[in-house]
Design a protein around this nucleic acid. Sequence first.
DNA 1: AAGATAGCCAACCGCACGCTT
DNA 2: TAAGCGTGCGGTTGGCTATCT
Length: 280
Amino acid sequence: MGRQPCCDKIGLKRGPWTIEEDQKLMNFILHNGIHCWRMVPKLAGLLRCGKSCRLRWINYLRPDLKRGGFTEMEENQIIQLHSRLGNRWSKIASHFPGRTDNEIKNHWNTRIKKRLKQLGVDLVTHKPIEQTEMSTSGVNNITIAEEREESMEIKSQDDQAKSDLIKTDDKKRGGKDDDEELVSMDETSDLLSNNYEMLCGTMDLGSWIKQLENNNTSSYSFSLPVDEYNNPSIGESPSLQDMDSILSWDSFNNHLVDDIFFMENSQYCNIPADSVPKYC
DNA sequence: AAGATAGCCAACCGCACGCTT
DNA sequence: TAAGCGTGCGGTTGGCTATCT
């Protein structure tokens, strides 16, 4: 028997949120808090399902969200965490206050993945793809990286399954599913042994990548200037798209000064999304 | 100038998990 | 103990914008 849908979806609005909807949702949450997402749209007067409201709040409306592009330091930290945690975006996001898992996931898929590919870094093991493999006659580097990624993605699915098994076993033993335990699991697990070297060894992935970039700018063509990667948000004008979102956010916030004041004095100020009550 | 293509990101979907009854 | 339910999570999609031809 399959799960029932979270809502009947009949008569519910979908697609992009309007400023009016945002205001309704934010006003409601700031004044009433979140007790049950399913009830939120009804009580707030929104024609959305609770799930959609939750997503909108977490990814866009939350007052503690950090906006703007990722810094080089953040990017490198994401890469390091990904080598340890894999595609567990919420875990990775928990290391970045004010960033959402969706944001990090999108950034990984659109920027970092490409960057690593161009640098010849394996997207799963986070190890450099061997020079011998890269210099195979008649085959360009990108093709090799793509093939490698494809094969490793299959491997990663197996690895993830194994990892889940280990996690399950660990939970059965009453253990916690936190990063520290993942690290210790690395020591006993073949599947993560490749990452252990990166994690516990002397290798600094961030500086290594930077070094690669410096060494390879002549041999690789970047789709973006390195500077843009390095720090799109500092010392530069935001992109039009960024500006647009900032503008809309600002104009939206102008209507909510009172609410923010209320929020700053409320129990919801600076509380991470995951500490909001989970159940009704 | 106009159409094609690529990049980006907000939002949706479906499954998994954990709590309650 | 099993079923029901709400929420969290990761993968995917769709639409908007920018860039290229």
